[in-house]
């Protein structure tokens, strides 16, 4: 028994069979399977990294959202504050204006009253002068109705002048 001696016929067939099997499997068999599985592995990796990225993006988005809400709130508060201040200012200025207007009107009225008063006083004085003249005229006429009285007057007047 020569188990350790390779038989030439079997060597021949083994070489042919193995080479054929290898060529078939290397061309149509294993690369198809390993290629597909590798493709799948890659796809899974990609999907995982995409999911991770999406997660990050979502976290980022919610952060952004919070930031925007906070900003909006702050803005709102600022606007409200500004509006309140504006209102105060408008009210104050309106009050001022009203006060000024009222002052001006009162002043004008007072002036008018003064003027009226002056005019009235002037008129009254004129009237009074006329009345006094008339009274004086009447008094004079009555006093100087006789000669004696006229003489006396002239004397007094001369006395006064001298």
């Amino acid at each position: 028994m020569n188990l350790m001696l390779p038989d030439s016929g079997l060597l021949f067939w083994m070489t042919i069979i193995f080479v054929i099997v290898f060529l078939i499997l290397a061309k149509f068999g294993f690369p198809v399977i390993t290629g597909m599985v590798e493709k799948r592995t890659r796809r899974i990796d990609e999907a995982l990294s995409a999911a991770r990225k999406a997660e990050d993006a979502i976290a980022h988005l919610s952060q952004e959202q919070e930031r925007i809400i906070a900003e909006t709130k702050a803005q709102q508060a600022a606007i409200l504050q500004e509006a309140a201040a504006e209102r105060e200012r408008i009210i104050a200025s309106a009050q001022n204006q009203a006060r000024e207007e009222a002052g001006r009107i009162v002043e004008e009225a007072r002036q008018r009253i003064n003027e009226e008063k002056e005019a009235a006083l002037k008129d009254a004085r004129k009237e009074l002068a006329l009345i006094s003249l008339a009274v004086a005229d009447k008094v004079l006429r009555k006093e100087l109705s006789d000669d004696k009285a006229q003489k006396e007057l002239v004397d007094r007047l001369v006395d006064e002048v001298v």
Partner: peptide, 14 residues
């Protein structure tokens, strides 16, 4: 092997 390879050809292994 070819039968298994055929499955990968016919299906979208992904």
């Amino acid at each position: 092997v070819l039968l298994s390879a055929r499955w990968y050809r016919r299906h979208e292994a992904v």
